[in-house]
Lab assay of single mutants.
Amino acid sequence: MLEGKVKWFNSEKGFGFIEVEGQDDVFVHFSAIQGEGFKTLEEGQAVSFEIVEGNRGPQAANVTKEA
């Protein structure tokens, strides 16, 4: 699992990017966010995740919000 911070997330469109120190930003789709209820992320929020190869390159999977 990697750790990063949410760079930005558009809850209307359901996607955004996660910043990872020393690496390129990683695309995140709302469907990759773990948990119940409305799936969104806040700018600057700490998250842990895995990287998988998507249709358009690397993207986040199994995203969990850090306490």
Rank of each mutant, 00 (worst) to 15 (best):
T64R: 09
D25N: 13
K13M: 10
P58N: 08
K7C: 03
T40R: 06
E42G: 13
T64E: 10
V52L: 06
Q45P: 01
E3K: 15
D24S: 14
S11W: 13
P58Q: 15
E21H: 09
Q45K: 07
G16S: 00
V63F: 01
V20P: 03
E21R: 15
A60G: 05
E53A: 09
S31M: 14
V28W: 02
V63K: 00
V28F: 11
S11N: 14
I18W: 01
N55Y: 09
E21A: 08
H29W: 10
G37Y: 12
V20I: 10
F38H: 13
K7P: 01
I33W: 03
A60V: 03
E66H: 11
T64M: 14
V26F: 06
N55F: 13
E12F: 12
A67E: 05
S48V: 12
D24Q: 14
K13D: 04
G4Y: 02
E19I: 14
D25G: 04
S48L: 09
T40V: 13
F27M: 03
F38R: 08
A61M: 11
K5V: 08
H29R: 03
F30Y: 12
E53D: 12
Q45T: 14
V26T: 07
G16V: 01
Q59I: 13
E3S: 14
S48M: 12
K5Q: 05
G37T: 10
S31N: 10
N55S: 12
F38D: 14
V20F: 07
V47I: 10
Q59H: 12
S48W: 07
S31Y: 11
D25Q: 06
F30G: 03
K39I: 07
R56D: 10
E12Q: 13
K39Q: 11
A61D: 14
G54F: 06
Q23A: 08
K13S: 06
V6W: 01
S31F: 06
I33K: 01
M1S: 11
E21F: 09
F9M: 03
N10Q: 12
W8A: 03
S11Y: 13
K39R: 09
N10P: 02
G35M: 14
F49K: 00
F15Q: 04
S48F: 12
R56Y: 15
Q23M: 10
F38S: 10
F15Y: 13
V28C: 06
V6P: 01
D24C: 05
E3A: 13
E36I: 09
V26Q: 02
A60W: 00
I18L: 13
V47F: 01
E12R: 14
F30L: 06
V63I: 06
S31H: 15
E12W: 11
G54M: 11
E12N: 12
N62E: 05
E12Y: 14
Q45M: 06
S11L: 10
G44K: 10
G22H: 09
Q23G: 09
F27K: 02
F49I: 04
I33F: 06
G16E: 00
A32N: 11
V47H: 00
E12K: 11
M1G: 13
S31T: 06
N10K: 12
H29Y: 05
G35I: 11
E66Y: 11
G37W: 05
